[in-house]
């Protein structure tokens, strides 16, 4: 397997991660696209296959953060459908579906630094130490962010938390 085919193999999980990071929004594929363009322009000649996956996720993560900074500078915007999804459900369906709904909201409401750690570990299966290296933070910080993310999500599952109101444009 070559570096290129390893990149190719990783694309589906990059999409999954981007989709989760952006709450299933359409622009997830744009994020993946930009990540791949950046990656292809910066392949290092002596890169090994095992370096590829963490490297790609680091690129996509950094690209997300830098894009996020621009959005923050402009003020967050969410569309009406999303806003509706963030409102408390009116007619509770069966409890499990309700919990899923709450989890979606909870994930969206997590601070970026907690959400990325939670997703890299829980969804993408990276080792704790790998995540620390990818984000350039100490292992202890990874663990505390993971802890906070999980407990925060749990509050949502139990209906103890409501997302902070965001500006609707």
């Amino acid at each position: 397997m070559t570096v290129l085919s390893k990149i190719e193999e990783t694309i589906p999980s990059l999409r999954r991660y981007a989709s989760a990071l952006l709450g299933g929004r359409q622009d997830a594929d744009d994020l993946v696209h930009d990540c791949l363009v950046l990656a292809l322009a910066h392949i290092k000649p002596r890169m090994t296959e095992s370096e590829v996956r963490p490297w790609l996720f680091t690129i996509i993560r950094n690209h997300f953060i830098s894009g996020r900074r621009k959005i923050v500078a402009r003020g967050t915007s969410i569309d009406i459908d999303e806003a509706a999804a963030l409102m408390p459900a009116t007619a509770p369906v069966q409890e499990q579906r309700m919990q899923m709904h709450e989890l979606s909201k909870g994930l969206a409401a997590l601070p970026d630094d907690q959400r990325e750690v939670f997703l890299l570990i829980t969804l993408e299966g990276f080792e704790y130490a790998e995540v620390a290296a990818m984000l350039g933070i100490p292992l202890g910080t990874v663990m505390s962010r993971l802890s906070r993310a999980r407990d925060h999500l749990r509050d949502f599952m139990d209906g103890r938390a409501r997302p902070a109101l965001r500006r609707v444009k």
Binding site: P12, R15, Q99, L103, T122, L123, R150, M157
Partner: peptide, 26 residues
């Protein structure tokens, strides 16, 4: 157990994205 449920949920919710065929631009 709640953490485990989160883990199962996040996979159930987003794994299907990874199984979709790749769009041309990707």
């Amino acid at each position: 157990r709640a953490w485990q449920a989160q883990r199962d949920w996040v996979h159930a919710r987003f794994d299907p994205v990874a199984a979709e065929p790749l769009p041309p631009q990707l």
